Amino acid sequence: MHTVLIAESKSNSLAVPQAALQNQGFDVQTMVLENLDHVNQKSSKGVVSSIVIDQTIATSAKFDTINTLKSYYQAPVFVSVDDNNDDIQSLLLELGADDVIATHAKPRLWRARLDAMLRKCQAVAEQNSNNEDKVLTFGALTIKGDERTVMLENTLVSLTTHEFDLIWLLASQAPQVVSREEIYEKIIGQGYQINSRTIDVRVSCLRKKLGDNATSPQKIKTVWRQGYLFVKEAW
């Protein structure tokens, strides 16, 4: 049985997702997260497979909550939101969330999204074991599979887990175009959702961190109706 940790800004703020997950057979632990010290005080490290937090915690100006929880538990973080505002969802993904789900989503959808992420994490772990000795170099860009690091002009680029997975996928398949369907399957762990902007947001963040031109990208290009192209000669 998979264990899900629900971290709330106040008691019962995520009562609906909690009930949905319990309904679908997950073992659910809860804690009120007033500050990040509570991570050490209230829970045992490494015992959860996924984490669900509310929007208030995720967007707190005081703490880098999402990445702190991900680092401590080595588990994906889902943010529960009250509406489907694109700007809010984009912000949460930029902050490092692995997925964003509507608080009042049906139990079956909660189950499907968490299961998809668990499959993705397992696939990434297998891929990492295969990539341990691989180093990809393109001009001033070096990507190390064993360390999961990216160096650009001898400077370490800070990437989220998904951003590293994305750059590795694109770079390792260059000069082939990588379809949106393949990116969704391998990075998000879900089938392609035509109305979702998740991949667009992550590619945009990656371009920004790698110094690509936002309006006319030269390093990671969008190929209309096909996907994304990592340009080997642009580095």
Results as ranks from 00 to 15, higher is better:
102 A>K: 13
96 G>P: 14
91 L>Y: 05
177 V>C: 06
28 V>R: 02
185 E>W: 14
177 V>G: 06
96 G>F: 15
63 F>C: 01
32 V>T: 10
211 G>V: 09
126 E>S: 12
86 D>T: 14
72 Y>I: 05
65 T>F: 11
107 P>V: 02
57 I>T: 10
39 V>G: 10
17 P>M: 01
224 W>K: 13
186 K>P: 03
130 N>R: 15
72 Y>T: 03
139 G>H: 02
169 L>H: 14
168 W>Q: 06
97 A>P: 12
234 A>I: 02
51 I>D: 00
173 Q>T: 07
38 H>Y: 11
146 D>Y: 10
82 D>W: 08
225 R>I: 06
56 T>D: 11
104 H>E: 10
196 S>G: 01
41 Q>E: 11
199 I>W: 13
56 T>W: 09
198 T>L: 14
209 K>Q: 10
8 E>T: 08
34 E>D: 10
195 N>F: 13
152 L>G: 00
89 Q>G: 08
144 K>A: 08
221 K>C: 06
211 G>K: 12
192 Y>M: 02
176 Q>Y: 11
91 L>T: 13
139 G>E: 04
149 T>L: 13
184 Y>P: 02
235 W>Y: 09
36 L>C: 07
102 A>H: 12
162 H>C: 11
28 V>S: 02
210 L>D: 07
28 V>P: 05
174 A>Q: 08
48 V>A: 00
90 S>Y: 08
193 Q>Y: 11
56 T>N: 06
194 I>F: 15
185 E>Y: 15
110 W>V: 01
193 Q>L: 12
225 R>N: 13
129 S>E: 15
101 I>D: 12
172 S>T: 08
113 R>P: 07
109 L>F: 15
119 R>T: 06
85 N>C: 11
113 R>Y: 04
208 K>P: 09
75 A>N: 01
134 K>L: 14
57 I>R: 09
35 N>I: 05
186 K>S: 03
147 E>K: 08
83 D>G: 04
172 S>N: 11
40 N>I: 09
218 Q>G: 08
162 H>N: 06
120 K>N: 08
8 E>S: 11
182 E>Y: 11
85 N>L: 09
163 E>G: 07
187 I>M: 00
235 W>A: 01
126 E>T: 10
164 F>H: 11
33 L>W: 09
5 L>G: 04
